[in-house]
Design a protein around this nucleic acid. Structure first.
Lengths: 107, 107
DNA sequence: TGACATTATGCCGGATATGACATATCGTCG
DNA sequence: CGACGATATGTCATATCCGGCATAATGTCA
């Protein structure tokens, strides 16, 4: 079972959370999946800023839009892992970079 | 530029590949993204088989269908990273497990 | 302060991934 | 061979994610 502070943090970002038996708690897998996305979100922002790119510039590189980039970095639930990872690849992240982020996503 | 054998291997699985300038070649990022998915596909099958689960049983666990599981394991282009990773989490993969698969996905 | 750049948020129509289902193919055992 | 369990393949309606746009909020510098 996951602590309520963590759940609150996730729900605050707009995540709708359902579980099998107890709707007050996140299922462990669901929580880990979300944390994975949030870790990638954070890393995306760091990478973009390190390169001194605006969200608009990155959006162009991705053939996407500034608002989508903003949502990626905000950890918006409407953003998929696919988009996050393809964005990181576009920003030059190596497989090892991705692996490192993912390895430390939960705790 | 990527060698033609590799491209053929991917296209054989049903991937439609486009690039900015040269439509005969995969963009490097696109190829790495696809290899990532294929690596996760392989790992999914291995994990399922190690647990002696049928595709049907796994489908139930995922609230999905046998055909979707088959497509996941076949590396079908219609399957997202999201679904692959959530499936691996359901099968008990740890973050480190995921990281290891991803770290070695390309070369 | 105001002007300007950047980022955040909300919404929408179109594109893509989804589960479900039917059916085909494969593998194994009798 | 046939029967049967497992896996593969194709299709479809629906759900989800997408880029794009408008606009609000935040930040920066004069």
């Amino acid at each position: 079972m996951m602590d309520k502070a963590k759940k609150k943090r996730l729900e605050a970002k707009g995540w709708k959370i359902g579980t099998t038996t107890d709707f007050l708690d996140l299922s462990a897998e669901e929580a880990r999946y979300i944390e994975l996305k949030l870790a990638l979100s954070d890393h995306l922002r760091r990478r973009r800023e390190r390169k001194h790119l605006t969200q608009m510039q990155l959006a162009k590189m991705l053939s996407s839009s500034q608002s989508r980039v903003a949502k990626m970095e905000a950890g918006d639930p409407s953003v998929s892992l696919d988009l996050l990872i393809r964005s990181l690849l576009t920003l030059g992240a190596s497989d090892r970079d991705l692996a490192k982020v993912i390895a430390t996503a939960n705790g």
